[in-house]
Design a protein around this nucleic acid. Structure first.
Length: 409
RNA sequence: CGGGAUGUGGUGUAACGGUAACAUACACGAUUCGGGUUCGUGUGACUCUGGGUUCAAAUCCCAGCAUCCCGACCA
């Protein structure tokens, strides 16, 4: 990709209303654009990162479930059936404006903030035999929640990306078994996202769903809204609510700010009961289905990655999620021919290159933009490098001259 | 939803109640070519909206809207 043709440009300044590091750098780098409070557009660079994050999640989720794609818009009667139309106060309700057509004008819809109301009735249509159980399905989708106070760039949005997985089991015991499987899969996701050392498995209460336990995956991060209580001895972590409940005075916790990137919780029979969803066992008897719900927020993860991996010059992407593998800079048009050869060589090996081919831009600006965008490897072709290539990693200050044959990303 | 702050070209900032200025970005022309080069020319704002005070409002007052911050909230 030629930088000169990339949609979206870097900027020296961030909009004054963006305080969060992730929003400032992502906007300055041309990754995202703000539409309104808690709502952002993803430009090509940002979309590439988001897609990589989502693909890592998808690959791990495919090992423990099947992908589906559910609608954003829901009929309100499903939400009335569970009663959540009245209890979930962040719900967006949508009314059509077809004043000129024959469409009924008093219809009201829900913009799904989560999809239990959708998936449960679908499962009920097909999987009512014990022979269908257990199973799990997931989707990656845009969610809508009218947060009373969206903030911190991508960390707390009103419209955001979410991977949500739903499990269906015959018994509480089976549900707990799957819960552990999901936990392991989540650990793998965050490890692959480069967050292994920063992610904590945190015990939390069940929120609206249950008075029993649930767990959050929290990334240690100053910009986070949550507080984690970590016991270095037992390696157990708790959120504030649970820690208060435990109130073990002789314990000394490590206390730090964190951002929730995922959570898993058992739903038990809350939703299956609301919809009358039961399965028939081998004796012909009916039993309630045990469900679980498991979420990861890919767009929030993107914000967290910036919060955690940046320096004073810009973003420093882990290579698994970087928008490109290599940022190639040419200083002078006389190097364009070589650049094209090198790109061809790299692309034949599946390496994705962003080439800053601009001719009317100073070297300093190209380097500054390169640091801001944060691609893991920088290559420079200039009069100084002669027939060699200058190689530098984003996180390092060292440069070295290598020959094209030595180029191995 | 309580408290606080702020709304001026795309972006960032100025302007005592009296001609809306500068930087950046953008366009054109030179210049330069390893850390946001230098110079010239040009485009670009009904100063968030609606009222009010005043001879005169970006500026003062009221209301609304929007945005950010703190708190409450947060599947």
């Amino acid at each position: 990709m030629r930088y000169s043709q990339l949609f979206g440009k870097t900027s020296k300044t961030a909009p004054k209303d963006e305080v969060a590091i992730n929003a400032q750098l992502l906007i300055r780098g041309g990754f995202i654009d703000k539409e309104m409070s808690g709502v952002y557009s993803f430009l090509p660079l940002g979309l590439k990162v988001l897609a990589k994050i989502e693909n890592i999640i998808r690959e791990e989720m495919n090992k423990i479930g099947q992908e589906v794609f559910l609608p954003s818009l829901a009929p309100k009667d499903l939400w009335e059936k569970t009663g959540r139309i009245n209890t979930v106060d962040v719900l967006f309700k949508a009314a059509p404006a077809n004043t000129h057509s024959q469409v009924k004008n008093d219809a009201e819809y829900i913009l799904n903030s989560t999809h239990e109301e959708i998936i449960t009735p679908i499962a009920q249509k097909f999987n009512i035999s014990y022979r269908d159980l257990p199973f799990a399905v997931y989707q990656i989708q845009t969610k809508f929640r009218n947060e009373p106070r969206s903030k911190s760039g991508l960390l707390r949005c009103r419209e955001f990306r979410m991977k949500d997985l739903y499990s269906f089991d015959k018994s509480e015991e089976d549900l707990k078994k799957y819960y552990r499987i999901a936990k392991e899969a989540y650990g793998e996701v965050f490890a692959r996202l480069g967050l292994k050392d920063l992610t904590y498995f945190v015990a939390a209460s069940g929120g609206d769903f249950t008075s029993d336990f649930s767990h959050e995956f929290q990334v240690k991060c100053e910009a986070g809204e949550d507080t984690v209580y970590y016991d270095p001895e037992t390696k157990e972590a708790f959120n504030k609510e649970i820690a208060d409940k435990l109130a073990q005075k002789d314990k000394t916790y490590e206390i730090f700010k964190a951002c929730e990137v995922g959570n898993i919780f058992p739903l038990y029979t809350k939703f299956s009961k609301a919809f009358g969803y039961e399965y028939i066992d081998e004796k012909g008897e009916k039993h309630p289905i045990y469900m679980g719900s498991y979420g990861i927020g890919p767009s929030r993860v993107m914000g967290v990655l910036v919060e955690v991996f940046h320096d004073e010059k810009g973003m420093v992407w882990p290579k698994q999620v970087a928008p490109f593998d290599v940022h190639l800079i040419t200083l002078g048009e006389q190097h364009h021919k070589r650049a094209e050869e090198i790109i061809k060589q790299l692309e034949s090996k599946g390496i994705d290159v962003l080439w800053d081919d601009r001719e009317d831009v100073s070297a300093g600006q190209k380097f500054a933009d390169c640091d801001l965008i944060g691609i893991p490897v920088r290559l420079v072709l200039s009069d100084k490098t002669l027939d060699k290539i200058e190689f530098k990693k984003r996180e390092s200050h060292e440069t070295k001259l290598i020959s094209p044959e030595e180029l191995d990303i």
